[in-house]
Computed example of a mutant assay.
Amino acid sequence: MKKFSLFTGSLTAGLSIAIGAFGAHAWKDYLRDINRLETFETAARYQMYGGIILLILGVWQMHISNKYLKTAGYLVFTGTLIFPGSLYLICITQNALWGAVAPIGGLAYISGMSLMAYATLKQT
């Protein structure tokens, strides 16, 4: 699981930089025209948060491995796909209905972070 967290965290964080730069430069005028620049920036920021959390989980799992951290990794990765992904889809499709999907990703993020907190309490 530590390899999964480290790999997906690195990939997710790197992609957030690339996608964020694309939005800030190549798509900036388009995103302003459709009034979605802030939405795009929020997506890139939360994608980076997910990547950093996954990297932290990977390093943590190098020292301690338990089922809570493993499940937390999957939940954070799921949140990293769904939350920013739905915001990116709003920008790409100009369909605000994708916003109804975002809370699922947010719940996955929160659940993963809660499991990380629980794993800390269970740590001996």
Score class of each variant (00 low, 15 high):
K70C: 11
M1F: 13
A117K: 01
E41F: 03
S10Q: 12
T71M: 06
Q47R: 05
L15Y: 12
P103L: 13
Q94W: 10
L31K: 10
A44C: 12
I17Q: 07
I92H: 13
G99N: 04
L81K: 08
T39W: 01
G51T: 02
Y109C: 02
S16K: 02
K67G: 05
T120W: 15
T12F: 09
Y88T: 01
L15D: 12
Y49A: 00
A44S: 13
Y68R: 05
N35A: 14
V59M: 03
Y68C: 09
T8E: 13
A26F: 09
T78V: 05
W98C: 06
L121V: 14
L107V: 05
M113R: 06
T42G: 12
L97F: 08
L55V: 10
G23V: 09
T42W: 11
G14S: 12
A24H: 07
L75I: 05
Q94E: 14
D33E: 15
G106D: 06
T93G: 14
C91W: 10
H25G: 14
I82R: 02
T12W: 05
A100I: 04
G85V: 04
Q47N: 08
S111A: 15
R32Q: 06
G99A: 04
L69T: 00
L115I: 00
G23A: 14
I56C: 04
S16G: 07
A44E: 08
S114P: 09
G105H: 06
T71L: 07
G20M: 09
Y68W: 14
G58V: 08
I110F: 01
K2Q: 13
H63R: 13
Q61W: 02
G79K: 01
I110G: 00
I82Y: 00
F7H: 10
A117P: 03
T80L: 02
T71A: 07
V76G: 00
F40V: 04
L81F: 11
K122D: 06
T80N: 05
K67V: 04
N95H: 03
C91T: 10
A13E: 03
V76N: 03
G9P: 07
L69Y: 01
L15E: 13
G20K: 06
A119T: 07
D29W: 12
A72W: 01
I53E: 02
G112S: 05
R45M: 08
N35D: 15
S10T: 15
I53C: 01
T80Q: 03
M48H: 11
L11P: 02
V59K: 04
G9S: 07
A119C: 08
R32L: 05
L57E: 00
A72P: 00
T39E: 01
L81N: 08
G23W: 08
S65I: 10
I53L: 04
E38W: 13
L54C: 02
L115Y: 02
T120S: 14
T78S: 07
Q47V: 08
G105F: 03
W60V: 01
L55D: 07
A96V: 15
A117Y: 00
